[in-house]
């Protein structure tokens, strides 16, 4: 199966060259389509000190279809939906702009990058995005609070 082959390859590649601030692995050994990802909040961001767990689900059509990233840890972030799904909105993860040449590592790097700097143009939570734009102090306060509350 082509998808399994590629995912296995990517997993090996990732284990060899891990991304700082990101650790990832299969949720269970017999299913390569489900990864557990742990992001540590980058220094200087309101998420610093937090540990965020995510689910990375790869479709069986991978790499033709994009993976999905879901935060299982609650996070106050313009690009993460504030519901029980916690789905993350990344431009490259939209199926119309997804390219098979994009690797999981790059996706994870981008996710880590979003923690450092949210992307208001791609926001799912528009109210948080507005707050981030217009009232950064209050945004940071809430984000920090949520990090303390949920991501410890």
């Amino acid at each position: 199966m082509a998808a399994v082959k590629r995912i296995t390859k990517e997993l090996a590649e990732f284990s060899n060259n891990p991304v700082p601030g990101v650790s990832a692995g299969l949720a269970s050994e017999d299913n390569v389509f489900k990864w557990n990802v742990i992001l540590t909040g980058p220094q200087g961001s309101p998420y610093s000190g937090g540990v965020f767990t995510l689910n990375l689900i790869l479709p069986t059509e991978y790499p033709f279809k994009p993976p999905t990233l879901n935060f299982t840890t609650k996070i106050y972030h313009p690009n993460v939906s504030n519901d029980d799904k916690g789905s993350m909105c990344l431009g490259v993860l939209r199926s119309d702009s997804w390219k098979p040449s994009c690797k999981i590592v790059q996706v994870l790097e981008m996710a880590a990058g979003l923690l450092k700097e949210p992307n208001v143009d791609d926001a799912v939570e528009t109210s948080i995005a507005d707050e981030y734009k217009n009232n950064p102090e209050s945004f940071e306060k809430t984000a920090r609070e949520w990090t303390r509350k949920y991501a410890k």
Partner: peptide, 18 residues
């Protein structure tokens, strides 16, 4: 909708692709 897209928005061309 298959896959995830942005809610609303006018990026119509590719927006409907999936």
């Amino acid at each position: 909708r298959v896959g995830r897209g942005r809610g609303g928005g006018f990026g119509l061309g590719p927006h409907y692709r999936e």
